[in-house]
Design a protein around this nucleic acid. Structure first.
Lengths: 231, 231
DNA sequence: TCAAAAGTGTTCTTGATACACCCATGC
DNA sequence: GCATGGGTGTATCAAGAACACTTTTGA
C-alpha cells in the first residue's frame, strides 16, 4: 500500500488452486486433474488456473472448479497463499489455495478444458503431484482435520440425509481414530443440530437406520449467540 | 495452473499488509502508519507494500515491516488473502495479509520511507483506516483470539522474562475475560513449558514476583510427539 | 502500619470415558 | 435362523470451576 507509483515493476502471475475433498462412505478422497500441457504434462495436479483481473479470488476458484471438474455449489474456503519464488518453473506465480468439500454421493465430475482427465484418489495414496501441490494438499488435509471437530463442516461431505453411522465413519476416516458408538451418538444428538427425518435408510440385511439432516439455520442462530460447535 | 500460455492477460498488482499487535501490560495495541501519499493521504493504514517479483511473500512482509516501522525479528504469520476487485481505488490489487506479534517492551518503532508517521493504537478504538484495512484488522484480531488459547503465541507479546501476572493480564486483555488467578497459574505451570528464573521482578510497593521464560525447544519436542498446548 | 500485588489447596461440579446387550432386517 | 449393522444407559474418572487468606515489599 505504500508505493503507489511503482506500477512499472514486473508482476507475478496470480492463480488459484483447489484441493477438493470427497468422502465415499469409506475413505477420504481428493480430486486431481491430469495436465494436458507442459510443464508437468501428464502429471496429476490440483484443479486451478489464472485469476482474471475483474473477478474476486473466490470467483476465480469457483470458475476454475466448474471449468475443470464440472463441480458447482460446493463448500469452498480459502486455505493459504503460496508464494515461493520458483514454485512454477516458467515464471513467478503466486497461488491462492482453496479447499473444497463436496458431497460425493451423486456428484458427477468430468474432465474439461485443458485437463486430460479428472479422478478421485484416496487421500492415503495420491500420486506425486505437479508443482508444489503435495505441500498444498498436505496443508489442506491438516486444515480439514483441524477444523472438523470445531466447525460443522463434516456435513458438507455427506449427502443431505445421512445416518449417524455415516457421520461417525466420516469422523473416524478423516481423523484417523476409532470412536465409541454410544458416546459419539450422545454428543452429536446433544448438540441439537440434527433433525431426525421420517425416513429410514435401508441398506443390506440389517435393521434400517434413522436418517438425519443438519440444520444450518439453527447452527447460525446459536453461533451468533456465542455457541461453539465441538465434536 | 491450467492455462499456461495466457501471460498476455492483464495482471493484478500484489501487495502484503501487516497487522502488527503489541501488548503494553494493560491492553492490546495495533501499529498503524499514516499515509504520506494519495489515495487516502493522511489516513492511517496497515504497514505494507508491493511484492517484488524475486522475493517470497514472507520476505516481502518482513521487508515492508522493516522499511516502514523499523521492526525486525518479529513473529509473523500469514493471515488471509484479500482479493475484492475494487478494494484499491487505483486498480486491481490483491493483498496477502499477515499478522505480527511484537514484544512491545523496548521495541522502538520509527516512521520511515513514505509513511508520515507510525503509531500504536489501542485495539478497542483504532482510527477508521484506509482501504479495506478495517476488515483485515478485524480478521487478524479474530485469528489472534482464536489461536491464543491453542498455540503458545502469547509469549511473543511479552518480554523474554515475564511474571505469571503479566501472562494472565495478556490473556485477559486479548480474550476480554477475567480469569481466576489460582486456576490460571496451576494450568500454566502444569504445562511444564515455563522455566522459573532466579530473578524476581521488583515493581512497586509489594511483594516481588517470580520471573519465568517460555521454553520453545521443549514445546517443539512435545508438539512433535502429539502434545497439544491449551490454555 | 498500610496499601498493593504475589503466592498457595481443597472441594465441588461437570463433562468425558468405558462398557454389553437387544433389535430389525435380508438372505 | 443367522449374519449384519442399528440402537440404547449407567457407573467411573478426570478435568475445570469456585473460592479466601497469608506473604513480601515500599512508602
Amino acid at each position: 500500500m505504500s508505493r503507489p507509483s511503482t506500477y512499472a515493476y514486473p508482476r507475478a502471475a496470480l492463480t488459484v488452486d483447489c484441493v477438493v475433498f470427497g468422502f465415499d462412505e469409506a475413505e477420504l478422497k481428493v480430486l486431481l486433474i491430469q495436465r494436458g500441457l507442459a510443464p508437468f504434462k501428464g502429471r496429476w495436479a490440483l484443479p486451478g488456473g489464472f485469476v482474471r483481473v475483474d473477478e474476486t479470488l473466490d470467483d476465480a476458484a469457483r470458475r476454475e472448479l466448474a471449468e475443470e471438474t464440472g463441480l458447482t455449489n460446493v463448500f469452498l474456503e480459502q486455505l493459504y497463499t503460496f508464494g515461493a519464488v520458483k514454485r512454477d518453473p516458467r515464471e513467478r506465480v503466486v497461488s491462492v489455495a482453496y479447499y473444497a468439500l463436496v458431497k460425493l454421493a451423486g456428484a458427477h465430475t468430468r474432465a474439461a478444458t485443458d485437463a486430460a482427465d479428472a479422478r478421485w484418489f484416496p487421500i492415503s495414496k495420491p500420486p506425486r503431484p505437479a508443482f508444489d501441490h503435495a505441500g498444498i494438499l498436505a496443508l489442506a488435509l491438516a486444515r480439514l482435520r483441524g477444523k472438523l471437530r470445531w466447525q460443522p463442516i463434516g456435513f458438507e461431505l455427506l449427502p443431505e440425509k445421512f445416518t449417524l453411522s455415516q457421520l461417525q465413519h466420516l469422523y473416524e476416516a478423516v481423523l484417523g481414530v476409532t470412536l465409541d458408538k454410544r458416546n459419539f451418538r450422545k454428543r452429536v444428538l446433544d448438540l441439537g443440530l440434527l433433525v431426525p427425518l421420517r425416513e429410514t435408510h435401508m441398506a443390506g440385511a440389517h435393521r434400517p437406520a434413522q436418517l438425519f439432516r443438519f440444520d444450518p439455520e439453527k447452527y447460525a442462530r446459536l453461533a451468533r449467540r456465542g455457541f461453539h460447535f465441538e465434536l
